[in-house]
Amino acid sequence: MKILLIEDEAELRKSIKQYLHQEGYLVESAADFVKASEKAGVYDYDCILVDITLPKGSGLDIIKQLKENHSKAGIIIISAKNSSGDKIKGLDLGADDYLAKPFDLAELNSRIKALIRRRNFDGSKSIVVNEITIIPDERQVKVNGDSINLTAKEYDLLLFFIANKNRVVSKNAIAEHLWGDDSDQMDSHDFIYVHLRNLRKKLMEKGCADYVQTIYGIGYNFKTN
């Protein structure tokens, strides 16, 4: 899986690269418009993360260029400019997703996974993790072949865990993933606990192993190995 990261801030580039590398992706990066345009023109990527404000040009032009070349890469805009105008412009040009800075790396990871899954028409339509099978198109979850009924929040939580499996995911990242901007408004950690308890119960009732490890103080780790 090849990812091109177009980001001018060196520190952020380094961290994202490291995180995605740990996830098993091949990550290349470009720090300005010229280099980014060059790489995007020459190589094929599965996913391109593009910042809009770049030295020497705009990330929106790179999206235009990719679309003119009929690139099949999924495009996620990562921008500090959290403006709905830019978001709409980017999505209109053909970007698949928009993530406003600052974001959680776990969130970025789950967006990339979701994007690749959606793009991967030829491949399998389900995610399999040991005894758990998820069919995202139908929002269906099976454990050892038996369907289980999950609420929307429980389903999202499970998918987020699986996208970030074997990673420590902070409670804040989960809250933001599940409730978006509303997560600012509540003691979301208690809510996570309620949903997590129900999810665990439902999974284990069907004989699923308890993969969720509580990491003291921080959050959880969905440990599958």
Partner: peptide
Amino acid sequence: AVLKANVN
């Protein structure tokens, strides 16, 4: 964003 990524 940089700080957050590093904490992650």
